[in-house]
Amino acid sequence: MHFGHILVALDGSPACAAALGHACWLARQGDSTLTGLFVIDTGWADFIGNDWQSSSNARQGFLDHIGREQDAQAQAARSQFAEAAAGLGDARFELAAGDPVRVLLARLNDPGTDLCIFARRTFQVSGRPSLKSAARALARHATRPLLLLP
């Protein structure tokens, strides 16, 4: 089976290394386009109930702190992708922002995506608790081919 465009979710941690390795292998086999996607989770402000009456900097200070952590993860994901996809003809790394499950669902259900590869523990490094069930949500709502890895 040939997949013209493969999408793999990345978070810069070892959790998605196998998924990335598999995606690269498939892309090499089929001469496919490969996209590595990192999603900055923007749900933290709502999760912590951010508001301006708490203090001048308590909650916003935390959001900046988490922002820095996510930036570092994004950078790690970029490096992870660059290293694994070296030598591939058509490979690109993309950064998106939003609810990771929603963003990924929109991308994987896009007719331009032929296969999405997702490792179960991806997005758990700097994501909110509900992202632990991201794989289940993706499996339930996917309308295009999805490969879930442990």
């Binding site: 933290w44 308590a58 200070g61 935390f62 702190h65 988490i66 952590e69 996510q70 758990q124 700097s126």
Partner: peptide
């Protein structure tokens, strides 16, 4: 959330 940045807490801790 006030404590997290001061003790280098990760998102998952919070």
């Amino acid at each position: 959330v006030a404590t997290a940045p001061a003790v280098e807490a990760k998102a998952s801790h919070v």
